[in-house]
Simulated assay, not measured.
Amino acid sequence: MTSLADHPDLTLTVSEAGHGRPVLLLHGGGGPATVSALGHHLARRAHTLTPTHPGWDGADRPSWLTGIDDLAMAYLHLLHDRGLRDVLVVGSSLGGWIAAEMAVRDTAGLVSGLVLVDAVGIDVPGEPIQDFFTLDPPTLGAYTWHDPERFRVDPSTVTPQQQARQAANRETMRVLVGDPYMHDPKLRRRLARVRVPALLLWGASDRIVTPAYGAAYAAAFGDGRLVVVPEAGHLPHVENPTATLPHLDAWLDRRRESGA
């Protein structure tokens, strides 16, 4: 548990592993389990910090924390309080949105690189973000995965405790991303002022936010690059890690070789 100097009523649950360059790993709406394998991979070569967002998986959320901008500032304060610099921020889906919001607010220069994995957060005309809250489980699976059958969950195997946790996570999401849905109308134009390099990894079969949406996201950054991962949907690091992780590793090496 970590308390922030500026927010004593906010206690963050942060898992840490590994040594080296600091990497802040931010999960999406599915919770920290969706990035656990990615965290293990990163910890082989970096000091990896993986917080559980307030309101997810039973973590406390103070009443004032009502938007993604609040989370972005909280994580910048975390980096500051820890004395961390040259931080690579890696975010999946909702976590990618948080990472982008951190970058536009990072006046202290703590963040030196970004990796956004099928991120939400901007408005792209003609490429709407699918409404997560209106999709039934089979439809959500079809929109999320390249191979939905491989990741289909038998409802009878979900315990009441898991159901309650999932319902609570969804309610937290409603508070943080409900209006306007899953984006900050001002974020896209602000990204041009972000000068740290941004790698956007995108599943070719993602139907929550399409590769065309990802291309517009990458183009909005001052230094953005899109890589489309084949045979993968919204969570390419889960569905096709063999094709996803080398790009992330090369990004870490690129920054190291550039002297960052």
Rank of each mutant, 00 (worst) to 15 (best):
G178F: 06
V238W: 02
L191E: 01
T159P: 03
G30M: 09
M1T: 11
A212P: 00
W145C: 03
D6C: 10
G18K: 00
R254F: 10
L25W: 00
G58E: 01
T107E: 11
R105K: 12
A218W: 07
A108G: 06
T159I: 07
P185R: 11
W202F: 06
S93N: 08
T34K: 05
G113V: 07
R207A: 14
D154V: 05
K186E: 15
Q162H: 01
K186C: 11
T159S: 14
E101T: 07
L116R: 06
L12M: 03
G113D: 08
E239W: 10
L135W: 01
A212D: 13
Q162F: 04
G39A: 11
T157V: 14
S156C: 04
Y213Q: 11
V238T: 14
G126I: 10
T210W: 01
A5H: 13
A250E: 12
M102Y: 09
G58I: 04
V228R: 14
R207K: 14
G233C: 06
R61T: 01
A192C: 08
D106I: 08
P128I: 07
P62T: 01
G113P: 01
V153F: 01
N169L: 10
H41T: 05
L201N: 04
L49Y: 11
P155F: 02
S156N: 12
F151H: 13
L65T: 04
Q130I: 12
G96S: 08
D223I: 12
V196I: 14
R170N: 10
N240M: 10
G30V: 07
L88A: 09
V104T: 12
V175R: 14
A216R: 15
H53L: 15
L71G: 03
R105W: 03
